[in-house]
């Protein structure tokens, strides 16, 4: 569970629904709980990987902007979740990271958007491979429906299963 800047819990949006967030974000200096699902930062993972791989519970890693997916490309099998941080609405680095994780490194687990996540980016995020979102919103499910209803035509091929305009034309 992630407390928001305003103090209450930020809801997790997954497959269009608000879902229980079983993961706890563990800081670099925090003690590792005996059990339960945890997400750690890249440096914690690199420092404590043996301990973390023995951990009872699901494991996730969070990449800050500037931390490249290639740093964990050999470790992906250990992670159920990879969280990618958006430090600001305007910082689009994590869009590339998500695509690389899905399309280059073949990561099949959950890719979670955290940080400054807003309705107006959900459709972009979904297209590059994000499938869960920690979103500060009064009604995340409505946000998801709104974003989905906005656009259903895309020119760019990504590996999200959408048919592109180019593919539609060929039919």
């Amino acid at each position: 569970m992630t407390p928001s800047k305003k103090g209450f819990t930020v809801p997790l949006l997954k497959q269009g629904k608000v879902a229980d967030d079983t993961f706890v974000r563990i800081g670099d200096e925090d003690p590792l709980p005996d059990q339960g699902d945890v997400i750690v930062g890249l440096s914690r993972w690199q420092a404590d990987r043996d301990e973390l791989t023995r951990h009872k519970g699901s494991l996730g890693v969070e990449l800050a902007v500037g931390e490249s997916p290639s740093e964990i490309e050999g470790d992906l099998a250990h992670f159920d979740v990879i969280a990618l941080d958006f430090p600001a609405f305007s910082d689009g680095r994590a869009f590339s990271s998500a695509r690389l994780l899905r399309e280059r490194h073949g990561f099949q687990g959950e890719i979670r958007a955290v940080g400054d996540v807003e309705l107006e980016q959900l459709h972009f995020m979904a297209r590059v491979g994000f499938d869960s979102f920690l979103i500060e919103s009064d009604d995340p499910e409505k946000d998801w429906t709104t974003a989905q209803a906005d656009l259903d035509l895309w020119y760019q091929p990504t590996e999200d299963g959408h048919t592109t305009v180019r593919q539609k034309r060929r039919r």
Binding site: G92, F95, Q121, F124, R127, L151, Y155, Q156, T158
Partner: peptide
Amino acid sequence: QWSSLHPEFSFL
């Protein structure tokens, strides 16, 4: 067409 609402490159 490729650059219109590019999902990866809209927040450069």
